[in-house]
Amino acid sequence: MKYEFTDDYLTGIEFIDQEHAHLFEIANETYDLLTDNLVTDKYDRIVSLLEELREYTKTHFAHEEEYMESIHFQHIWSERHAHILFVKKLEEVDLQKVDDSQDEYILEVLDFLAKWLTGHIKGADKRIGVAAGTIKQ
């Protein structure tokens, strides 16, 4: 099932919302890879998607944290901690495991992303919009 960036995910902070939308695009590329039955060896593409996700989230998290600092967001430390754990999970990927069971690993990545996108963005990141006054509770 494709990931849809709906209004439920909006923080009201344009650049954050655009970056979140790009995370959905990466998730959808990952889903497309899973469902592409014409590709028998997906390893290189999985590694490429993981690298893109890791680098993009580092950039996004830096932008988000800079913004949180600028508005003196009271939950910045819990946000930073969540960001650190997300990046750590991506950095600890066992590439041999990926190669051994590619589709199974893609499903793990999709599950991880789905939980993050729905849980973190709809919860923690929406609080940034509330604090900034861009959305109402």
Score class of each variant (00 low, 15 high):
2 K>I: 14
3 Y>G: 15
4 E>R: 13
5 F>E: 05
5 F>R: 04
5 F>M: 07
5 F>I: 06
8 D>I: 09
10 L>N: 10
10 L>Y: 09
13 I>D: 01
16 I>N: 02
18 Q>K: 15
19 E>K: 00
20 H>D: 01
22 H>I: 12
23 L>I: 12
24 F>Q: 07
25 E>L: 09
27 A>H: 05
29 E>R: 15
30 T>W: 07
32 D>H: 08
34 L>D: 04
35 T>H: 07
39 V>H: 00
39 V>F: 04
39 V>A: 07
42 K>P: 07
42 K>D: 03
42 K>G: 01
42 K>Y: 02
45 R>N: 05
46 I>P: 02
48 S>E: 11
50 L>Y: 05
54 R>C: 13
55 E>R: 14
59 T>V: 12
59 T>P: 00
61 F>C: 03
62 A>V: 08
65 E>R: 05
66 E>C: 09
67 Y>I: 06
67 Y>K: 08
68 M>K: 06
68 M>T: 11
70 S>E: 10
72 H>W: 07
73 F>G: 01
73 F>N: 03
74 Q>Y: 14
76 I>L: 13
76 I>P: 01
79 E>A: 12
79 E>T: 10
79 E>D: 13
82 A>E: 15
84 I>F: 14
84 I>L: 13
87 V>N: 02
88 K>M: 11
90 L>C: 07
91 E>L: 08
91 E>Y: 04
93 V>M: 01
93 V>H: 00
94 D>E: 03
96 Q>W: 12
96 Q>A: 14
96 Q>P: 03
99 D>C: 11
99 D>F: 12
105 Y>S: 07
107 L>A: 12
108 E>R: 10
109 V>F: 09
109 V>L: 15
109 V>W: 06
110 L>W: 08
113 L>H: 02
113 L>N: 12
114 A>H: 14
115 K>Q: 14
115 K>L: 11
115 K>E: 14
115 K>S: 08
115 K>F: 12
117 L>D: 00
119 G>A: 03
120 H>W: 03
120 H>G: 01
120 H>F: 06
121 I>P: 03
121 I>C: 01
122 K>Y: 06
123 G>C: 09
126 K>T: 13
128 I>E: 06
129 G>E: 01
130 V>Y: 08
134 T>D: 00
135 I>G: 02
